[in-house]
Amino acid sequence: MTNFLTILFDGVAYGMLLFVLASGLAVTLGLMNFVNLAHGAFAAFGGYVCAVLVNRSGVPFFVALPLAFAAAALAGVVAERTLFRHLYRRSELEQVLFTIGFVFMAVAATDYVMGSSQVFINLPDVLQGQIDLFGVGIGRYRLMIIVICGLLTLAIQGTLARTRFGARLRAAVDDPRVASGLGINVPQVFAFTFAFGCGLAGLGGALGAEILGLDPYFPLKFLIYFLIVVTVGGSSTITGPFMAALVLGIADVAGKYYVPKLGAFVIYALMIVILIWRPHGLFGRTVAR
């Protein structure tokens, strides 16, 4: 039983991490209808910023995390304003070509600047090791991930549902023309949303370096996982990807633990079954837009 709880805990942490990494993609894809396969590049960027700050400049880890968010968000704004903005009206396939090209450039550039070996972030001692809670082993680092990601999720959901900005964003997505007629600065709303999504990815990259590893190929290696989370969750809400990330995280970890021989099958098989059962994702709108 205690083992089961440990596995459940690990699965939740893994799922939360996937969610933070992929949520930005869910936003751009679901709300802005933009296929941004370059999403992982911003995650890697955040991760590398954090690594350089902590390892080379001696910035404390907890200070470096928000900086990673800010740096990735800034990179997102710049990229959106200069490049991605021109692609919102293009066909999806052109968006795919463009963003994959962007990832290729990012990967090679990272390789050039940072080298091709894996990078690790020096963690403070507080975050290392496990604590024992009624016989259940709880990894401190994973506990931190759950706390941070949980709070973020609440914040995102709150922003979208309750604030003025959330309302503007939803209006801008549903009908940009009417929205701008109502005095909403649609490009600005999009830019802000895009930047926020990139920032989240950057934070996810910084948090995930410890568990997933960070190397120049990060954006390509984990692209599949991001896409799985977004499609399985359905891209029209934020709760969908959240639940999907949790389900997949737990299923993946539990699957590997209980039936290690089938290890990698679980996540793919689960995805296929869910998507055939509900093509718009677990929590997607049933009516196609």
Binding site: N3, T6, I7, D10, Y14, G137, I211, L212, G213, K221, F222, Y225, D252, V253, A254, G255, K256, Y257, P260, K261, G263, A264
Partner: peptide, 20 residues
């Protein structure tokens, strides 16, 4: 005896088995 997939992002479950 555990064999982990070559492309494997998270070692956690396998390590738990080791520990057990």
């Amino acid at each position: 005896e555990v064999k982990v997939p070559l492309a494997n992002p998270d070692f956690a479950p396998f390590l738990q088995r080791m520990k057990d």
